[in-house]
Structure formats: structure tokens, C-alpha cells
Design a protein around this nucleic acid. Structure first.
Lengths: 141, 141
DNA sequence: ATAATAAAATTAATAATTATCATAAAAATT
DNA sequence: AATTTTTATGATAATTATTAATTTTATTAT
């Protein structure tokens, strides 16, 4: 939920004694409303379209805050491009990617999730998060 | 196995009509002998130490060949740094990472691997590869 | 051994990211 | 509400990362 994420961001700001500013608000709003997987560049484009006066440094800085607060997460589709994903958008999910056409399906499997927790526990870890990307060839390719 | 990987690289070169050169050989050897997860920078440092005359562009190019030939794979530990991993070093494996101390354990679970193939098939995909990273807090932290 | 071809190094160009700093805005205090 | 304190911002510069272009050098095939 977008509202939930926004609240989390505000809480993070006050916890860290950071200020609520117009720029931060706008960037977060845009990020939360946008497509799943954004590069820095794509985000900056949209932000600039809404408010020409916002500097690129601010976008970098805000993106950092978003990751620190757990609202954004970096994902790797194996193409050496860093993308940011909204972790609140559709809850947690993993990725199934076609290496021919680039098709990207979001998946979620409770059995795997359970196994992941078990493995972590076996090594004495408390699992906090994970990423998983499956690469294959889809039936259309 | 290092030898196996080296062979694969040589095969890749001849298949693509690329030449075997001293530089490529050296870079591949170093990459295969090195620690699991190298950044471009780390690799270049070691290469330069062995042979001062090798240019940085050549390292970039060879790293590209390594990924194309399937010997290297990019991995994301969630810190916006692209690392290259030797896929032959200890065969396929996933990662369990402590978000406090950075400890990095290689894991492999046949049940998960099987589930991954099943999920991919369910969506009409033929699974070729995958990455999985579990983030948590280890018992020492 | 020689010619043909491709790769390397070097340099330059471009892109991405971070640092600096003066100004402006937000929160705290009066 | 005005003032003070603190922090954020934007512009620029600096740094770092990556790619391109070109001449020289090395490799392969003949």
C-alpha cells in the first residue's frame, strides 16, 4: 500500500532527525506510484517532468533514504543494471525472467519461502529478507 | 574446476573466432584463482600487479567475454555493487548473507532447486539459471 | 616467413556518482 | 510571529566508471 509506505518513510525521517521537505515528498510519491522496477535515470526523468527545479543530487540522496528505510530494494536482472523496486507495491515477490525476450513475471511460492527460512535457521541465521531471480526461456521464445 | 572453466573459455574463443592472447589467458587465470566475488576494480588491481602493461579496457572486455561464455555471473548483495562470481569455482550455489557483519555463506539446497524448476515449468519456462540471496542476522551478531 | 586479421594499449570521450559550498527552507526556540 | 539553529537543496565541480576511436602489436592461417 502506498499510504503505508509513505508513513514508513515519514517515521524513518523523524527517527533519523531528517526533515520533511517538498522534494523528498514528491520523489517518494512518484517512486511509489511508478512501475515496479526503476533505474535511477528513469526516476529522475519523471521527477524532472513534475518539477524542473529538482536537482539530480537530491534524487540520488532520496533514493538512498528509500533503500535505507526499506521501501526500495535493489534488484539484479543479470544485465549489470541496478534497478530499484518498491517493496510495498505488491508485497514481497520474486522474479521469473525470460533471457530471450526479457519478459518479467512476478512469482511467489510459499513452499520456497518456508524452505528459505529453514535453511537460514539451520545456519543460525534469522532471516530478514531475500531476493530470488529465475532465468529461463519462455514458451513464446 | 579451474581446468574445466579454462577449456570452456578456449572453446568459446574458437567458436566465436576470437584469438587466444596472453592478456586474455592471464586475466582468466587470475579470475578463476581469485576469491569468489570480485568487483571489476578488484580484478583489475590483481591483474595490474601481475602485469603492469595490461590496460583497463582489456579487463573490461575480457570480463564481458567471461560473462558471455557463462564462466562469470553477476551477483547482487543488495549494496548497489556489481560483483562477478566464478560459476565453476564450486559449482552452482546461493548466498546467505549477514546484514550486520557481512558474513557470506554459500548454500545449496536440492529441495529449493527442485521447486524452482517446478515453478518455472508452471509458467511455461525452461529454467536455465537462477540467483538467490538470503539476508539475515547471524547468531554471532 | 609473410600476409591478413583481430586484439591491445593509449588516449580521449562520455556517463555515472559523489563532494563541496553558498543559499534556502524547515523545525525549534523564544 | 520572529529569530535562531539546523539541515536540505541546487549548482557546480570533482571523481569515478565505462565506452569509443585509433594506432601499434600480436596471433593465426597460408
Amino acid at each position: 500500500m502506498t499510504i503505508e509506505a509513505k508513513e514508513r518513510f515519514d517515521q524513518y525521517l523523524s527517527k533519523k532527525n531528517l526533515k520533511k521537505t517538498h522534494q523528498r515528498g514528491l520523489i517518494v510519491d512518484i517512486f511509489l506510484k511508478s512501475a515496479k522496477h526503476l533505474t535511477y535515470e528513469e526516476l529522475y526523468e519523471v521527477v524532472k517532468a513534475k518539477d524542473k527545479t529538482i536537482g539530480l543530487t537530491t534524487v540520488y540522496r532520496t533514493l538512498k533514504l528509500l533503500t535505507e528505510s526499506g521501501i526500495a530494494k535493489t534488484v539484479d536482472f543479470g544485465d549489470r543494471v541496478i534497478r530499484y523496486e518498491n517493496t510495498f507495491c505488491s508485497g514481497h515477490h520474486d522474479h521469473l525472467i525470460c533471457i530471450r525476450c526479457g519478459k518479467n513475471i512476478e512469482i511467489l511460492d510459499e513452499n520456497i519461502e518456508k524452505l528459505q527460512r529453514e535453511i537460514a535457521n539451520r545456519y543460525g541465521f534469522t532471516l530478514k529478507d531475500h531476493t530470488m531471480s529465475l532465468y529461463g526461456i519462455c514458451n513464446e521464445c
